[in-house]
Design a protein around this nucleic acid. Structure first.
Lengths: 202, 202
DNA sequence: TCCTTTGCATTGCAGTTGCAACGTAAACGC
DNA sequence: GCGTTTACGTTGCAACTGCAATGCAAAGGA
């Protein structure tokens, strides 16, 4: 074996540069040369690790999703061993909102990819399973978190669809700067109150 | 005055072509020549009515918003003179969802512009007032629609933020094909049930 | 030692982009 | 008729794009 290099590391380096470019100027500005410049490498190297631009895009999309997943996993782990369903839900959803600059940057990239996949149905289809699984998980938490005696007051599956949509929509409006983070969090809590009953005073 | 032409008509014709291109291939594919070809005119003519590409984009963005407004206005007018707050809310929000192919196409364009404005804060800022006004209106309807005795159970302003976010999020997921229109409508109705109490059986 | 594989840089090319420049034809005031 | 203004169409250009091709150095195996 000749000169050995960690492929994943290099690809991650490039994807990182791609996301910086995309976050600042949109996916339109993501070209081989542009990304290469942002990563401080030659465009030939970018081509070495991604044979086509589309391959690079696909990889970056995967990175965005993995980052979100990692964020959620970390935040949930910090809750301890036995969080209440409500705390778990709130932590998960709040973590996915673009509440600080880092998550805003990622959010802009994610939004760009959303528009990107909207005209590439094949790519979008790959995400359906993930959404379905997430919806199922949320529905379970809703069922577990509803006050005793109130089960079935609202259909948990439908409520899960609504709750995930709230989160997505709040993210969109936050990115647009239509209201401050506190407003989004308040709306999220109101939503949880509606679903699970008002939070018990501590 | 020499040869007189209806400027608005021409610009609308071009914007229409732009939206067709954007809906099918994304905003990246929106170039002078591409749009001109889709409109069946010369690229020189496009340049005559829009001095820069950015000017064309800005105009198209305005068209998208006007289309939505017109849609909502028309649907609300069809409700008659004195609709219930709940009916008004549901009609407005459902009309904004991409439930048929026409609205899906518009929705794809709107989503593309969302990503577009996310990296152009100046453009995005122009939309804040509109959102604020819409939120105020929705909050008023929520207050009016809440069952007697339940006023103040949830803060109407917060609930409005959540409701608008639900609509936006449902639209996103619909565009991605993550679930069928009925699921989105069911989630919307569930949301209204939560806010205003279960619908009275007819 | 040579040879093959890998990592990366450079160059080149065909295609596309936004936009300026220039042309011309038609409509109107005079 | 003439000049001016508007409404286009055409051409050209510099900048950029993705990508193929080529070159070359380094690191191993034989």
């Amino acid at each position: 074996m000749p000169k050995r290099v960690d492929h994943r590391e290099r690809r991650a380096l490039i994807a990182d540069a791609l996301m910086r470019v995309a976050a600042e100027q949109g996916l339109e500005a993501v070209s081989l040369r542009h990304v290469a410049a942002a990563a401080g490498v030659s465009s030939g190297m970018v081509q070495h690790y991604f044979r086509t631009r589309d391959e690079m895009m696909t990889f970056a999309l995967a990175v965005v999703r993995e980052r979100n997943e990692a964020r959620v996993t970390r935040a949930v782990a910090a809750l301890g061993a036995t969080p209440t369903p409500r705390a778990l839900l709130r932590t998960m959803l709040a973590e996915l909102l673009p509440l600080d600059e880092e998550r805003r940057a990622d959010g802009r990239v994610a939004l760009a990819f959303l528009a990107y996949t909207a005209v590439r149905p094949a790519v979008a289809a790959a995400l359906h399973d993930e959404t379905a699984a997430l919806l199922g998980f949320i529905a379970g938490l809703i069922r577990a978190g509803q006050p005793a005696g109130a089960e079935g007051r609202v259909d948990a599956e439908r409520a899960a669809v609504g709750l995930l949509a709230v989160m997505e929509g709040l993210g969109i409006y936050l990115l647009g700067g239509h209201y401050p983070p506190e407003t989004a969090l308040a709306a999220l809590d109101t939503q949880l109150d509606l679903l699970l009953g008002p939070e018990q005073a501590a």
